[in-house]
Amino acid sequence: MKTVIIKYNAGNVQSVMYALERIGAGYLWTDDEQEIRTADRVIFPGVGEASTAMAYLRDKGLDRIIPTLKQPVLGTCVGMQLLCRSSEENNTTAMGIFPVDVKRFPAGDQKVPHVGWNNLTNLRSELTAGMSDNPYVYFVHSYAAPVCAYTVATCEYMVPFSAMLQKDNFYAAQFHAEISGKEGQQILENFLKLS
């Protein structure tokens, strides 16, 4: 099986690579269109700021390629946000696979960014099969997608938000499965096992 990690200016892709190595999965880190199109699995990681990441994707033409992919695609963190319609972070227009707009957490008495381990509820994805009922996973983000028709896992921090989204062959997680202990590892294993 060929798993491709999309190469762009996202930070700390190394953690994703090591997480795949820990479960014995090979991968290719590339921005080559042909390699991406012929992959069995595509991981679209992301750490950083939305508008910069989106500008980079446009520059490389990746913003046109990603929405046309037919194999299972997993977007994580900012990768997930860029699969949505837009992000409030510097008014970024994103790829629009999920028809939902990413918002900043409301100003309140809670701290932003939302940093640390929080639990998932309303699990409805193949990717969460085999996890505990309300698994804890690691989040670091200031922006989040509201709960919508494509939400397959919910998390709550001041407001409920989409911890995971799913539509056709597109899967997305706001948290960092690659550093979320055994529970996170289960999600990556499930993604690689999708038929």
Partner: peptide
Amino acid sequence: VARHVNIP
């Protein structure tokens, strides 16, 4: 560490 540890 990154290779062997699965938490931040």
